[in-house]
Design a protein around this nucleic acid. Structure first.
Length: 274
DNA sequence: ATGTTTGTTCCGAT
DNA sequence: CATCGGAACAAACA
């Protein structure tokens, strides 16, 4: 489910609400495998204090006092839920963490319906840092570099935006809306992008991602994304063209088409292919 | 029943 | 050997 705004919301809230708690116990659901393996994971995580929670691309990183890091990728249907000790049964719980400090006890649940997500114990974040391209929200990313990265692959702009090794944090929804705002056809080959296209697209990406953050993410009709308190996001109320039938600008019928395996909405009138 | 779904990885073709 | 596109992973819903 989660793209940069959703993961940002979860990681930021976790940092505020579970920092300085100690993971006094943890349970891994039958059949679920944390990496590198469950025994190692439990041994290294148990009784560790949480120093902070951060984020790289779509990964949540829980930093422990022993300098190990829990990497959590939510895949399509992952959730992190922070509950009180005696609260409701949640669906698809894969790992349950018991957190304690002077203030009391909390339960943190990693849930994942389709299990495309993963939980990995890392020694360092360096491999992760090197794997991803810059995020559009990174102020150090300039138009020249952005365009150069996009043109380094022979593919469509839609596909390039979803390739995390090139540009990270962007997923299908925000890519779709950013291309609409920038008036770029999603099947435009990156080699055909102009400098002006790059200016508009980078600006549009920053706009939709920052709006998404401000609105605490997007929750679709399946309600799969919720924040750590189980609350829905609000950005779905501000989608430009994703899931729409008619263009908000010119009222044309929106085209829905699978591009590089992902459902894509675009306005054939406002987004001409080059 | 068939076609969808916020993501990533890996395999086969070129 | 490098690159790219698409299948596969799995579960729920319309």
């Amino acid at each position: 489910m989660p793209e940069l705004p959703e993961v940002y919301t979860i990681a930021t809230d976790l940092n505020s609400y579970i920092k300085d708690y100690v993971i006094t116990d943890l349970r891994i659901a039958r059949g679920y495998i944390a990496l590198p393996d469950n025994d190692t994971f439990i041994k290294e995580v148990k009784n560790q204090k949480i120093e902070k929670v951060s984020r790289i691309a779509k990964n949540i990183l829980i930093h422990l006092e022993n300098k190990k890091i829990i990497q959590i990728h939510l895949g399509m249907t992952g959730r992190m839920l922070l509950r009180s000790p005696k609260q409701q049964a949640d669906k698809w719980v894969r790992i349950l963490f018991k957190l304690e400090n002077k203030l009391g006890t909390k339960i943190l649940k990693f849930c994942d319906m389709r299990t495309f997500g993963k939980v990995v114990l890392l020694k360092t974040t360096s491999t992760l840092k090197n794997k991803y391209g810059p995020e559009p929200v990174d102020e150090n990313l300039n138009t020249e570099r952005f365009l150069e990265i996009l043109k380094s692959k022979k593919t469509t702009i839609k596909n390039a935006l979803l390739t995390q090794e090139l540009i990270s944090g962007v997923g299908n929804i925000y890519a779709t809306d950013a291309l609409f705002i920038a008036k770029i056809h999603p099947e435009t080959l990156t080699k055909n992008l102009s400098y002006d296209d790059a200016i508009n697209l980078l600006k549009s990406l920053r706009k939709v991602l920052n709006e998404g953050i401000k609105n605490r993410g997007s929750t679709l009709s399946d309600k799969m994304y919720v924040d750590i308190f189980g609350r829905e996001g609000k950005h779905q109320n501000f989608f430009r063209i994703y899931s729409k039938n008619f263009c908000p600008t010119c009222k044309s019928k929106v085209v829905y088409k699978t591009i590089n395996g992902r459902g894509t909405y675009f306005c054939p009138s406002c987004q001409k292919k080059k």
